[in-house]
């Protein structure tokens, strides 16, 4: 194609590119705005009490008690949505055995039952390891030894108080660190 043909092509079809240029320009404003908003730092809520409800006495009280020891550590975050919590759990190299720690207590002072929806996400699943959420000592499996994941739902009866924890059971010694996130959402039963 000679120069004249290129010029003719540009003149003929160049105008159709204008909407795309406008879109690109819009993106050039949108991307920095989103990035800057996303760079807004957050902060930890540790060893803290969160109250969900009308008043201090008539509410669901959530108390965080983060764990840090040589085998496991937890960091609890309150998310932007009320009643939603995220617990980042880091496990470290450890001998075979069962490790169980409570990191949160939930007290339902309302005159109705509440429901806890539990989901979890794992960056990697350790082989031959079972990870569970414990509610007053009752085990709710999040990931079993075969790597199957579960999302249990737990009823929070009115007037009761529960200690919530994490239990890690591994049949063999583990020589590396890994982490996973547990999402708790306290709401009404569907």
């Amino acid at each position: 194609m000679n120069n004249r043909a290129v010029r003719r092509f540009k003149t003929k079809f160049g105008k159709f590119l204008d909407p795309f240029v406008v879109a690109a320009l819009f993106l050039l404003f949108l991307i920095p705005a989103i990035t800057v908003i996303n760079l807004t730092p957050g902060y930890m809520k540790q060893n803290n009490t969160d109250v969900l409800g009308l008043s201090d006495t008539e509410a669901v009280r959530v108390t965080f008690n983060n764990i840090t020891n040589e085998y496991l550590s937890t960091t609890t975050y309150k998310t932007m949505i009320e009643g939603n919590y995220e617990i980042n759990v880091a496990t470290y190299s450890r001998p075979s055995g069962r490790y169980s720690y409570n990191f949160m207590s939930i007290e339902n002072n309302l005159d109705k039952d509440k429901y806890i929806f539990v989901t979890s996400s794992f960056s990697q699943i350790e082989p031959d390891t079972q990870i569970s959420l414990t509610v007053d000592g009752i085990k709710y499996i999040l990931v079993d030894r075969d790597g199957n994941t579960y999302s249990p739902g737990i009823t929070l009866r009115q007037g009761e108080k529960f200690d919530v924890g994490v239990m890690v059971e591994n049949d063999y010694d583990v020589s590396f660190s890994s982490n996973f996130t547990v999402h708790l959402s306290i709401g009404e039963e569907i």
């Binding site: 730092p41 957050g42 902060y43 540790q46 995220e86």
Partner: peptide
């Protein structure tokens, strides 16, 4: 956050630092 659109967030120890 592996499951969210914005995957990384900077977190400080308290609200004043943030």
């Amino acid at each position: 956050h592996t499951s969210e659109f914005f995957s990384i967030e900077l977190i400080y120890t308290d609200s004043n630092a943030a």
